[in-house]
Amino acid sequence: MSTDQNRHDEFFVGYLPTPQRVRRFAIAASISLVAGAALVGIVVASMQQSPGMGTWDTSTATTFDGLALVDPYAMLRVKDTTASGGVSTILLVSEGKFGAADRIRPFHGKAVRIRGTILRRDGRRMLEVSSEDNAVELLNPRESALSELAPAPRSEMESPVSLRGEMIDPKCYIGAMKPGGGKTHKACAQLCVGGGIPPMFVTRDSKGRESYFLVVLQDGSAANEAAIPFLGDPTEIIGELELRGDLNVLRIDPKKIVRL
């Protein structure tokens, strides 16, 4: 039998010894497939976009003294020499996908000491309040200190404004999940905002710089339910802007939100 015929007659049966040429081809094909798959993995992994500069230090508990507020969302006004006016606002959330309004409500308008882990992104801070019973303690500060921290007056800006961006759940977006936005995060964001975490709207300018807006309804109340359907989708919102201390607040009419 000629060599050509031998090659032609080589036949693979799984439970019999594999003919040499068949084996060689199978090895080459297997190596090619594994290498091709690895190449796909390298390309896909290396082309992922940056999730942003968010951080969440879960290993270190941080304590803040300040004025607790729950209107419209749980937040803490603290002294901050780097902020204009010397006061900045830290949004408060609970562990998991929950807001902290129920926890903070008994302390509304009072000076407190709160312990938790801090999330940071682009100068915005959020505190995940520790679940320990003594994580929120009532303080008895001097009157002058309390007046410094008093709720910031509202100052209206241009009205109405049209903004393009994304409705986000800020806990994940600021640092709990990276990335914590976009379509793949939508269901998680719905769970977070549905659980009481305040919704925010984020816009990006042409250089990729982001601006954050705390979202409330037109009457200034919490907008969680209204924001849920639009989380994770690119949207355009026509609303009214106001400045509350260091917080940009966007008052929305849910009927004036359009998916892009």
Binding site: Q48, P51, G52, M53, M177
Partner: peptide, 12 residues
Amino acid sequence: TWGGQQAISDEI
């Protein structure tokens, strides 16, 4: 690809 403050979460 992305490390430090820009690191993607391990779970993701």
